[in-house]
Design a protein around this nucleic acid. Sequence first.
DNA 1: CGCCAGGGCACCG
DNA 2: CGGTGCCATGGC
Length: 294
Amino acid sequence: MKVKEAKSDVIVKDIKDFDLGQTIECGQCFHFIKLGENEYGISAKGKMLHIKQEKEKLIFFDTTPDEFEQVWREYFDLDRDYAAIKAHLLKEDSKLKEAIEMMWGVRLLKQDFFETLISFIISQNKQIPHIKQIVAEISKRYGDYLGCIGQEEFYSFPTVEQMLNISEEELRACKTGFRAPYIKNAVDTVVGGRLEESSLRNAELDMCRESLMQIKGVGTKVANCVMLFGLQRYEAFPVDVWIKRIMEYLYFDGKDTSKEKIEQFGVERFGAYGGFAQQYLFYYGKTISLGVKK
DNA sequence: CGCCAGGGCACCG
DNA sequence: CGGTGCCATGGC
């Protein structure tokens, strides 16, 4: 019989190329609460985490060495050499300089496929605070209670099985609006076996995207986000309004250019590093409101 | 109060 | 196919 390990704080030192705030707030994930300066409560992978960064030190509160090694080390992508990625991108393209310098500490979280799929279906035509609110509501209603930090309660995002019998009306009660049938269709498609995670991970990129787009409510952009954030397909280059603006500014002489063209350009230019470049550019452009008319 | 949000779909020519 | 209006809801 395995004795349950006592919980305590796990401290990781000498963390480079990582800023917790940037990584959490850059728009790739929606299931967290800011507790303080560079301090967050996160729900992910069926678990909750209280984490804080102090310079190059990361503190994982109230967890176990086992859980850190098996869950959080991978989730935060701590074993990837981001210095090398940034150096590669800058060598290829100096136009990324400002974005990478400002957003130097962004890492791509290895998020769950299903949660990412539903979250980005919700994300369409919505702002991040409202996406967070809806994800929290769905988790509270249909996920598992995980615990609390102070007054804040944390719930896991529901599994496919937990979402199987939710009606469209119930989903609308979570403020999903016109996306309710989309979410239902996504659940049915995954349950029906027409979308298998392992197949999506191994499929050629365009095939992977096409498979995801069989879901009603999943178009090119949402599919690319699911591939990048939920399937770790780092060649994906999602084009949203912010990427469109900054790419037009940097590469298309400020001229109106179709999202399709921009995606094609990004994929060709950045290749296997497309997703990393995209995330630096997205967060930078959004933060400085690049291209927004006043 | 009007505009737009990490879009996608149906419908149009 | 490429372009346009509509879709719920909330923040600004």
